[in-house]
């Protein structure tokens, strides 16, 4: 499969940004400077980036509580995100949403979502907007294996088929809904669930950018062409706990180490593109260095940014009241 040079560079940069952003949060959270809780996307970068590589600002995505990666992949700036996570006025939501509610509707990013299963119904609506407004857009719901058991998700799969919506349901299956394994919580298979609604189904290795890119490309093209929704089942693993501070006592020793060693999407991407001479290693090194600086600057700026003011408390509940 041929992938344009600039898409490869952009995707690598996006994955690297997510990785460094999350790794840095892991460190900073431990210092106690970050309020609330954060859910890290480390290890899952290729999924969000491989899907969003096919989207433009016209297209819409809905994310989950583990949303930083989707935001970055859809183009939300790390400065605003970092400031938001630090609860600063300069944050993308002015410090009023935090990690779980980062959104930028101007980029078609309908928000991370604190409610498991919150996104799929919203994406039916976004897809309806694309269909009625005839803007050619596609709407993509990212949801986890945990959310795949929510009634909202199952109802949305049905509604999307009934309305033949330009929607893609990306099930990011990292094997755990919080601390409970998908092996316990998910009856049957995602494939059979899609089949139950008569919905086309694709699956791929979510730690392999190229696999995600290809499968997502097919799914999105199908939806964009007006053929109705598709389920894309992405198999992956998360490298950290459900939230920061989760000791992951439910996972076997060595499970994460194995993932990091053998299924690191960044390492595998680098190996693949340099072996096939698609990209020069120096180009990737340059991106690594540049992203490192960018994250450093974002953290520094966030720590120094102003806090929300008392007047912000009651602002923006309504457009008018």
């Amino acid at each position: 499969m041929q992938i344009a040079h600039d898409i490869l560079l952009r995707s690598y940069r996006s994955m690297r940004t997510i990785r460094d952003f999350e790794e840095r949060l892991h460190v900073e959270f431990a210092t106690g400077d970050i309020p609330g809780f954060v859910h890290l996307y480390c290890g899952e970068e290729a999924s969000g980036v491989g899907v969003c590589a096919h989207l433009t600002d016209t297209d819409t995505i809905a994310s989950t509580h583990r949303g930083h990666g989707h935001c970055i992949a859809k183009g939300v700036g790390v400065d605003g995100m970092m400031a938001e996570i630090y609860g600063r006025k300069t944050g993308v939501c002015h410090g009023k949403g935090g990690s779980m509610h980062i959104a930028d509707l101007s980029l078609g990013m309908l928000g991370a979502n604190g409610i498991v299963g919150g996104g799929p119904p919203l994406i039916c609506g976004a897809a309806l907007s694309h269909k009625v407004l005839k803007d050619g857009g596609v709407a993509v719901a990212f949801y986890g294996d945990g959310a795949s058991n929510e009634g909202t998700t199952l109802e949305s799969l049905n509604l999307a088929m009934v309305w033949k919506l330009p929607a893609v349901f990306v099930c990011e299956d990292n094997g755990y809904g919080e601390a409970t394994g998908a092996a316990y919580a998910c009856a049957g298979t995602q494939k059979a669930r899609a089949a139950g609604f008569g919905m086309p189904y694709l699956e791929c290795d979510g730690t392999d950018f190229f696999a995600v890119y290809e499968a997502a490309g097919q799914a999105i093209a199908h939806a964009r062409a007006g053929n109705g929704p598709v389920m894309l089942h992405v198999h992956l693993a998360r490298w950290y706990g459900h939230f920061e501070g989760d000791a992951m006592t439910y996972r076997a020793n060595g499970e994460v180490a194995e993932q990091r060693a053998r299924h690191d999407c960044l390492k595998n991407f680098r190996q693949s593109v340099t072996e096939t001479s698609l990209l020069e290693p120096t180009a990737l090194d340059d991106i690594d260095a540049s992203v490192k600086d960018e994250i450093e600057a974002a953290v520094k700026a966030a720590k120094n940014a102003p806090l929300p003011e008392p007047a912000d408390l009651e602002a923006d509940v309504y457009v008018s009241y």
């Binding site: 509707l105 309908l110 799929p120 919203l122 039916c124 609506g125 309806l128 907007s129 009625v132 109802e155």
Partner: peptide
């Protein structure tokens, strides 16, 4: 302009919310 739905309140009320946030 007029969309009948399955008996599926969570999906279609959620869809109405999503549609409202995206231009309808």
């Amino acid at each position: 302009r007029v969309f009948d739905t399955p008996i599926s309140e969570a999906s279609y009320i959620g869809a109405a919310v999503g549609a409202a946030a995206t231009g309808l």
